[in-house]
Design a protein around this nucleic acid. Structure first.
Lengths: 199, 199
DNA sequence: AAATCTATGCAATTTAAACTTTATAATATT
DNA sequence: AATATTATAAAGTTTAAATTGCATAGATTT
């Protein structure tokens, strides 16, 4: 085809941008969160400036209530924050503009929650086992003793695994991960936006 | 309370085991997969030997068809495999018994898929932009030129991010992650089950 | 403190995912 | 080849999650 009209070109460009945003949204379910989270992330990111619930509702065609819920969730996940805009009464929301940092936030917040739930259960189960051991009289069947031993072993493995995740999360959160897997390919002098000191 | 009956103790032990299995299942949605995946993982893991679809259906109270679907998904995620049992016609399924390795498999397989999808889109968009640039005649508006430049920048950022994830996945898959975040706390002489050479 | 605009909690509805039933294809056994 | 038993596919149903509309509470301006 020959030289296009400007309108047609702008239309094509918009389509390309939309495809990127849509892919961001899709990828979100790998983190176990709703795709609407990704859609808003994409919209605000592409917009380059803070946006209000009304603007988001306009862009998505969804209800303002839903926008409120999702932005709240995104703030809980540490991938969005409110930004004060002088002269405006509305709340404005921004998102982290560094993809990698967004990945880290999503990864660490969700796994921290998992680790915490696990630790609670572990404590409870250890107490329970202690009581069981005390309660098992001299006449306790060998089978019972074996099962208790196996359960303790299981709990130890389990705890070791969660301890690993705990340290893994810390490794990401502190930014140490960038020392071993830098953002840009080796050969570039400047390997990341925020420097090594993250936490 | 005083010394319990053996039946009561076995009952308590079983409850504790069930709670662990239930937690494994719950945690699965952090990976973005159905909790049934986690439930089967827990059941087979606790069982310590390969199981058939019928046995799984018995344990869960779900249909055999569903068991087939989920086991297929688990094999796609590299966290389960078929095991040939001599003399039996049925398929028997086992799961990885190392929690950490299961984590790695889930993490790497899902992100690999995401990276692959992204690369396909990226290629397609770059072609499109090239065509746009060729098609923009001498009379192309400055706005169009700006938008194209911005889109290219966006695509570069985007590609850098996915390249990072790509290398991150490799870092996990190769086992190098264990060099920087070992499975057991430092102080233990033996830091992991499979040694350093994973891939 | 009344009026006006904001964001959010809650019940109701829509939509998507999980799961089951039924039907079919594949594989082994006789 | 006929039979029995397995695994998978397709369509239908149930259950859970996402989304909306309405009602209310919190601010801000006048």
């Amino acid at each position: 085809m020959q030289s296009m009209s400007n309108e047609k070109m702008l239309e094509e460009i918009k389509q390309a941008e939309d495809q990127i945003a849509e892919r961001i949204a899709d990828n979100m379910d790998t983190f176990g969160v709703s795709s609407t989270v990704g859609r808003l992330l994409g919209i605000i990111y592409m917009n380059r400036t803070a946006m209000t619930l009304d603007e988001l509702a306009d862009h998505t065609g969804m209800s303002k209530t839903r926008m409120s819920q999702v932005m709240r969730q995104m703030m809980a996940l540490n991938i969005a924050e409110k930004e004060f805009i002088k002269g405006s009464r509305k709340e404005h929301y921004t998102v982290e503009d560094d993809y990698t940092q967004t990945f880290i936030s999503l990864f660490t917040t969700s796994w921290k929650e998992v680790v915490s739930k696990n630790m609670t259960l572990e404590r409870r189960l250890r107490d329970r086992i202690t009581k069981l051991e005390q309660a098992q009289g001299d006449e306790a069947a060998p089978e019972v003793k074996d099962r208790i031993r196996a359960l303790k072993q299981e709990l130890d493995d389990w705890a070791a695994y969660y301890n690993w995740i705990h340290r893994l999360v810390a490794f990401f959160e502190s930014g140490e991960i960038f020392d071993v897997v830098p953002v840009k390919e080796p050969g570039s002098e400047d390997n990341q936006k925020g420097g090594t000191s993250h936490g």
